[in-house]
Design a binder for these strands. Structure first.
Lengths: 99, 99
DNA sequence: ATATTTGTTCGTAATTTTACGAACAAATAC
DNA sequence: GTATTTGTTCGTAAAATTACGAACAAATAT
C-alpha cells in the first residue's frame, strides 16, 4: 500500500528552495546572479561584510539546494544561476503564491 | 554620513519571509491558508504527523514572520493568512523571481 | 623555485531550529 | 463541582545554522 502522504513533494521542494533563500546574504547572491549572467566569488567577497569562509559556506548551501552552480576558472571560481532549477523554483513559487 | 548598505531592506525582508517558508510543515500550513480562508489548528494537528507542541511552534514562527494570524475562538484557535503581509510577500517574490 | 592570489576545508564556538512529552490555562460538557 | 477538550508554554535534547580565523590546495606571477 502506498503511504498516506501528508506533505506533498511540491511542498517539500518549495520549502527546500525557500530555506536556501532564507538568509540575506544568500538573497543578495541570488539577486545578483538572476540579474546578470555570472559573477566571481571575489566580487561578492569584496562587497559583503563577511569572512570569505562564511561566504563560501553560503555559496555551498545555494549549490546544495541546486540554485547556483560554480565553475572553476583558475584561480577563480565563476558562479552562475542553475537555470533549470531556478526555473523550477519560479514555477513552484508562482503556484504557491498564485502570482 | 549614511552607512554603505550592502544588503537592501528588500533582500532582508524577502529572506525573512523565505525563512518562514523554509520548512515543509510551514509550507503545508501556508498552502492551506492561502487556498481557503481559515483553519483551526486542531484540523492541522489531525493531519500532520507531529506533536501538537511542535505544530504550535511552527504556527508561532509563521505568526512572528507576519504571514499568518491567530484568533481565539474558545476553546479553539482560528488561523488565517495575514493578508497585508502575504501581499507584501507576493510582491517581494514576484520582483525577486521576475515572474 | 618561491611568493602571491583565490577560494575551499577544517576546527571551533555560539546560536537557532526542530522535536518531544509534561505541565498548564481556559473554556465547555457533564 | 469535576472531567474533557483545545492549544500554548516549559523543560529538555539533538541537530543544524551561522560565523570566524587558520590551514590548505591549486594555479599564476615573479
Amino acid at each position: 500500500m502506498a503511504e498516506e502522504k501528508v506533505l506533498t513533494d511540491k511542498q517539500i521542494r518549495t520549502a527546500r528552495y525557500a530555506k536556501a533563500m532564507g538568509h540575506p546574504v544568500r538573497m543578495y547572491v541570488l539577486d545578483l546572479l538572476s540579474n546578470q549572467s555570472c559573477c566571481y566569488s571575489g566580487d561578492l567577497s569584496d562587497e559583503l561584510p563577511i569572512a570569505k569562509s562564511t561566504l563560501s559556506q553560503h555559496l555551498k548551501e545555494l549549490k546544495d539546494a541546486g540554485l547556483i552552480q560554480g565553475e572553476i576558472e583558475a584561480p577563480r571560481v565563476k558562479y552562475c544561476i542553475n537555470k533549470e532549477n531556478w526555473q523550477e523554483a519560479q514555477h513552484l513559487f508562482r503556484e504557491f503564491l498564485k502570482i
